[in-house]
Amino acid sequence: MEVQEGHGLAAIIRRHGRRPDALLPILHEIQETHGHIPADLVAPLAVALGLSRAEVHGVVSYYSHFRQAPPGRHVVRVCCAEACQAVGAEALAEHAQRRSGDLTIEPVYCLGLCAVGPAVQVDETHLHARMTPEKLDALLARLERAS
């Protein structure tokens, strides 16, 4: 069965190869393109790689990095691992969760910024160190305005 052209899946698979071990790189590229893994891609992806739908769904749902639904306009991840806990990350995360709006705010377990915590990551590549509730409020307000 040919892979449907929907969502540019065929081109992504061509780039990585029709091998089961290409599944994670393919899922990463789908998510980079769409912001999440659209449910209707699971079946054609399974066919293309010679896997069952259960196997592909199992991988998508196992890894916390892969999203099954679109995130908000910006993704703000607050590190809640021990090194950041030691400098107030739990209170910071609780503070962040009180905000509403069109941002996805979620915990992350270690960004490798353990000497300059609490650490926050925005949209994968923007990093912030020694975060305080006040600085976080300003950051979130800026993100809400910008989008």
């Binding site: 691992a81 021990e82 090194a83 950041c84 377990y109 270690c110 490798g112 910024l113 353990c114 000497a115």
Partner: peptide, 11 residues
């Protein structure tokens, strides 16, 4: 896969 909190030498 340096996942331990408190470690960043690999990074």
């Amino acid at each position: 896969d340096e996942g331990d909190s408190g470690t960043y030498s690999d990074r």
